[in-house]
């Protein structure tokens, strides 16, 4: 059973990591804490749900659409919400995204009712992988693998492409980045969009097994905050490692110490880390 617990923990960890990577991008590059991050995730899940319900499209196939949709949402949010408050005192940006999160959550409930929706007949529903006494649901395995692929894609993009380097430079030294000919406003928009694309993919993957509901994003977003602090702001590799740690902590802690403490353990780890190593375990 221990192997089963660890396996489930790691699978969830990869998914948590992808959500966290979206958050660490905006936090690390722009120093903006996007409180509406969980709601972006929720909207992606709803998109997958409606594509499935109205057009019979499997979430794994509509995934690129969700990624694009939330990318655009992120970009637009930057242009309309964040940019306006860029010069106001720091707290204003926080409040702006917090307000956005409330608006999105209530809008979702208003438009689509608070009923819990489940996708029951996707390509991966009810299938499982069983080996060596371990049973893994196919939806979670696919979601996990998908998350890893997206994580690697984002990492490659930031490290190896022109725009990726521009993002890094802007994060390090905005003024000098401008001297390189980098349009820093565009970089910020793209970063926010990329952050959205991450949860766009995560949402599509999770819709195959997680209840879809206006509050669906809240817990994952909270865990993302913990993972970002653990992994270091702006550190993608750190977010991946942090995600796995949290996934394992939740699974093992819950199994051995008591399921009601699952999240208490996660937050305890968070408190310890920020006390002892504020820049995160792998911080830069």
């Amino acid at each position: 059973m221990l192997a089963q617990v660890i396996a489930s923990g790691i699978l969830m960890g990869f998914i948590y990591a992808l959500v966290a990577i979206g958050l660490t991008l905006t936090w690390g590059v722009m120093d903006i804490i996007n409180f509406a991050h969980g709601e972006f995730l929720m909207l992606s899940m709803y998109s997958a749900f409606w594509m499935y319900t109205l057009f019979r499209t499997d979430p794994l196939l509509s995934l690129p659409l969700e990624a694009l949709l939330i990318f655009v949402l992120g970009y637009v949010t930057y242009k309309i919400v964040i940019k306006r408050v860029a010069d106001a005192p720091g707290l204003t940006a926080l409040l702006a995204t917090f307000g956005l999160s409330l608006v999105l959550r209530n809008l979702a409930q208003f438009l689509w009712t608070p009923n819990y929706r489940f996708l029951n007949q996707t390509l991966v529903t009810d299938k499982k992988l069983a080996f060596a006494g371990i049973v893994l649901g196919l939806p979670q395995v696919v979601a996990s693998v998908g998350s890893v692929i997206m994580t690697l894609a984002v990492f490659y993009f930031v490290q190896r492409t022109r725009m990726g380097r521009a993002i890094q430079a802007t994060a390090l030294d905005k003024a000098t980045a401008k001297l390189m000919g980098i349009n820093t406003e565009l970089v910020y928009g793209v970063t926010f969009g990329l952050s959205g694309a991450c949860v766009g993919v995560a949402g599509a993957l999770m819709s195959t097994f997680y209840p879809i509901h206006p509050e669906s994003g809240a817990l994952y977003s909270l865990l993302a905050f913990v993972i970002v602090a653990l992994g270091g702001f702006g550190n993608i590799k750190g977010a991946l490692q942090g995600g796995i740690i949290i996934g394992l902590a939740e699974a093992l802690g819950g199994y051995f110490l008591g399921t009601q403490f699952k999240y208490a353990i996660v937050f305890l780890i968070y408190l310890l880390v920020i006390q002892l190593r504020p820049q995160g375990l792998f911080g830069w």
């Binding site: 059973m1 089963q4 617990v5 489930s8 923990g9 969830m12 948590y16 997680y210 509050e215 809240a218 817990l219 994952y220 865990l223 939740e250 699974a251 819950g254 199994y255 008591g258 399921t259 009601q260 699952k262 999240y263």
Partner: peptide, 18 residues
């Protein structure tokens, strides 16, 4: 098995029940 009011998954809970 007592579980938190908001859960991202019930893996551990069901593993214990099993």
């Amino acid at each position: 098995v007592k579980y938190p009011t908001n859960v991202s998954n019930v893996d551990t809970e069901v593993q214990k029940i099993k």
